[in-house]
Design a protein around this nucleic acid. Structure first.
Lengths: 251, 251
DNA sequence: ATGTCTTTGTGAACGCGTGCACAAAGATGG
DNA sequence: CCATCTTTGTGCACGCGTTCACAAAGACAT
């Protein structure tokens, strides 16, 4: 069945912590900006500020890649850009397919951040026959029927799913069967994939919900004069002063 | 100046761990699906499978909210939906503004996942005068000049930034000054905000880069017969067998 | 060459998050 | 009313990630 193997058992293969990998793109962006301004070297303190992280964390992160800094001076910007790019695998070309060319899929196809980082949109795929042939971001949309051949012909190993939730798992299965081993999922669903396939999830509404939680906390703290008190919810009473409980009680 | 206070000093106010908060929307979605299928109760094991997490983790998460389960039976679906919604602050209405109505902004405006979770798109804002008045997702786009009054009139506390990177910080500053205290940032930049303002970041290209890293690792492991060996990169030689190093060496 | 000064690289401590494993709680049947 | 069975709630241990603090390394001036 291969049920929900979304989380990998850690990346302890060569020793770069997952948390560090997740920050490398951040450093890379900051470094690229410095590079464009022809800044030759940068200290961990400066770069950390630019990337929005702690400087000690940054140094430790870089230490996993090797000793690329010079004590008393800092890091060579160009050299570091290259090392991180190589570590992330961005020195090679990654053909990517985007499945589901709705509003979001079109936005992704037009997103400039991909091409500039070694990612090439090899194909746009949609299930709607009316979309077929219509160019989006200068690339003609192809029909889902050709998914397998498109993957094979372009040697695609990374797929982006921007379909409705209902179609996501099915598309995912076909992508995986066709040889895709990394998936970026924008559909609000939990995808089941076999071992060896990586899935990363981006969920817009989840992010907003997390913000709402913190926003509500702020409001509550504001209302209750001093924070840290009051918040004793009436846990016993099943029908407290909540007023309108639109749900059945258990038991 | 308020330099880079992106990370909050932990949410230890009422005791719900940040990691748990981030999973609550996941549970909520799974529960909502069960609710629509009129499933009355669900065990931690089943729900965990549906949400793609460990069942012990799920039980511990719920324990932070209180004891809402019944031993031997499981959790009451409707009741839990309500409790999580309330905890996340989704029982109230959250007016949201989206700034930057390009491809992505339009996709967000059309995204159905917002409205169904208590979020209401109060306004769409763009700096392009040509966009003003043009309806997107049934909502007329307004000009950036009116940003402050829009925020004030609608009581907006959550803002979404979907502008180009160059404009993001400026827009952010104006949002914060106008009273917004939670920001969802899609622009590839580190935003500086004063204390008390929450920022969550969604970066499309970063996710792809992380996938590329793992994809490359797979390829390397594949190439080297048995994984776990070989990977001794020539650390000494500045000019190893890399071939084309398009960067300056340090020192 | 030597001393000073800056900045890296990292050892060590700490805290958070995860998952195991089990006791307590309650449902259910006799 | 008692026994059994299911499932929750959680104590505990472990590992990862973060941060501090400092020694080692190198640049630079004299």
């Amino acid at each position: 069945m291969a049920t929900g193997r979304t989380h990998r058992p850690a990346t302890r293969s060569r020793g770069i912590p997952e948390a560090t990998v997740a920050r490398l793109p951040l450093y890379l962006r900051a470094l690229t900006a410095l590079s464009e301004r022809s800044v030759p070297t940068v200290s961990s303190e400066e770069l950390a500020a630019a990337a929005g992280v702690n400087s000690a964390k940054l140094r430790k992160d870089f230490s996993y890649l090797g000793s690329y800094g010079t004590r008393g001076v800092g890091y060579d910007v160009e050299y570091l850009v290259y090392q991180i790019s190589r570590e992330l695998g961005l020195t090679q070309d990654w053909p990517v397919v985007i499945v589901g060319i709705g509003n979001l899929g079109a936005a992704l196809a037009n997103y400039g951040g991909f091409a500039s980082r070694g990612f090439r949109v090899a194909a746009l795929i949609d299930a709607d026959p009316a979309m077929a042939g219509k160019p989006v971001a200068g690339i003609p949309v192809q029909h889902t029927d050709d998914l397998e051949s498109i993957i094979a012909e372009n040697g695609v190993s990374i797929g982006v799913i921007a379909t409705p939730a209902g179609a996501a798992q099915q598309v995912c299965d076909r992508l995986v069967a066709a040889g895709v081993t990394s998936i970026l999922n924008f559909a609000p669903t939990v995808l089941s994939v076999p071992d060896g396939v990586d899935v990363r999830k981006v969920d817009l509404s989840i992010e907003l919900q997390i913000l709402a939680f913190h926003e509500q906390r702020k409001a509550v703290e504001e209302a209750a004069g001093e924070p840290g008190t009051v918040l004793q919810v009436p846990k016993e009473t099943g029908k407290g002063p909540d007023g309108d409980v639109p749900a059945v009680m258990p038991a």
